[in-house]
């Protein structure tokens, strides 16, 4: 089996995915929905907005975790390839 990989690019991709995960973490999107709900106390819409905020919180957390994990795995793969070879790797198995 033939594997071709640019480990520098792999590291860069890992860093990018991790940074994106952090960016998602920094967004106030859930807080904004909660804030909108708090601005309309007593309405059905407020209850639904809280529900949407909960759903969004869960979905964002899941994606963030998966992105962080993916970034970590990419980085780990790059390290593994570098231990096997240095720089650009072209291996045949």
């Amino acid at each position: 089996m033939r594997i071709e990989v640019q480990t520098s690019e792999l590291r860069s991709a890992a860093a990018r995915v991790a940074a994106d995960a952090a960016l998602l973490e920094s967004l106030l999107v859930v807080a904004r929905l909660d804030s909108a709900a708090a601005s309309m106390p007593g309405t059905e819409l407020a209850a639904a907005a809280h529900l949407a905020a909960d759903g969004l919180r869960a979905a964002l957390a899941l994606v963030r975790r998966q992105m962080a994990a993916c970034g970590g795995q990419l980085d780990a793969a790059a390290v593994a390839y570098e231990l096997t070879d240095s720089g650009a790797v072209t291996r045949s198995q």
């Binding site: 089996m1 033939r2 594997i3 071709e4 990989v5 640019q6 690019e9 792999l10 991709a13 995915v17 994106d20 998602l24 979905a59 899941l62 994606v63 998966q66 992105m67 993916c70 795995q73 990419l74 793969a77």
Partner: peptide, 21 residues
């Protein structure tokens, strides 16, 4: 940048994350 089984799996995974985002 990454051809091979692991590369394909990683591409698919990133693609899923893209759709999820």
């Amino acid at each position: 940048d990454w051809a091979g089984v692991a590369g394909d799996a990683a591409s698919a995974r990133v693609g899923e994350l893209r759709l999820a985002a």
